[in-house]
Design a protein around this nucleic acid. Sequence first.
DNA 1: ACCTGAACACCGTTCAAGT
DNA 2: ACCTGAACACCGTTCAAGT
Lengths: 188, 188
Amino acid sequence: MTQVRPMRADARRNYERLLKVAAEAFAEHGEGASLDDIAKRAGVGSGTLYRHFPTRQALLEAAYVDRVEGFARRADELAEELPPGEALAEWLYELCVGTIQVRGLKTLLGSAVADASDAVLTVCGTHVRGAATRLVEAARAEGTLRADVEPIELLRLAHGVVGAAELADGGGESIRRYLSLLTEGLRA
Amino acid sequence: MTQVRPMRADARRNYERLLKVAAEAFAEHGEGASLDDIAKRAGVGSGTLYRHFPTRQALLEAAYVDRVEGFARRADELAEELPPGEALAEWLYELCVGTIQVRGLKTLLGSAVADASDAVLTVCGTHVRGAATRLVEAARAEGTLRADVEPIELLRLAHGVVGAAELADGGGESIRRYLSLLTEGLRA
DNA sequence: ACCTGAACACCGTTCAAGT
DNA sequence: ACCTGAACACCGTTCAAGT
């Protein structure tokens, strides 16, 4: 799971600088940010970047894992403050807003809830799925959420809501609107 | 609107070959298909591609405008065959399935329903928005659709459903499931 | 009027050489 | 053990030269 041998001092320094610069670059340019640029701005050779993070996905995940953990913690906060149904609704709203505001996070959360029959479940996937499951179970027990809706379905639909909101202005009001339509349904 | 002067014979031939090859390439590799490759496969210089289609978006739209018109015609067929509510539901289903099956179409339809305060409305946008409006008005009049839902909102949500279904297996069953959740709502 | 394709800029990825 | 940066492959875009 974790490093057996500690990193050499220079390696550790490079690793951390890369993470910091990568988070900024992804936030600024989205998930397609230039890797070469990230390496340059971190003051390391491009090979060093690839040594630490073999794929773009690996770097993206490492750069944003803190934020995703933040969402998971926030779920438990909300569960203590609000009735289950409201806690779930508010959490989904905050998750969508965060996803749309921090560029690069959308792809990461998308792959975290993608059908991963082949790939191993990512760290981010574990966090976000766990949080959703806790909120969903409470809301189901309370009787405010359809019993047949799975946590993963809710996360995928939330990802879809973000996509829909992006086609509008991408602001919080669009997200509220589309989440509300999803919750209430489209029937007259 | 249309060409005033007809194209020179060789220009017209190149134009048509580019469209044909582009449709194949986008279907195969998605919207990111190599433009250089398209030019080569069509047997023209890369400059010729840019002359006819200044942006990737322009080529994408030209290559798929037929299909989008097909969706618009299909809306009117369904409106004749089924009650308004069912016609709308079936059309959205077919639209989503088509969007997911033909790679490259998703981006095109996305930008067709994007908030276009700055850009001019595209041809595809006009078609698809018109079709949705006709179906929505009928369903509203029938009383099976919430009166406050705009056609453009429905199209954006459908785009979101496609995104959600892609995170699952991307098959027709996922689309049916997510469209159903959207229609019925999430409440117990 | 239209086409060609070389030229340029940019990016991802690998790997030989270095410490 | 780790780093560097040149080298290679690939792609988008422009534009001078050609018909």
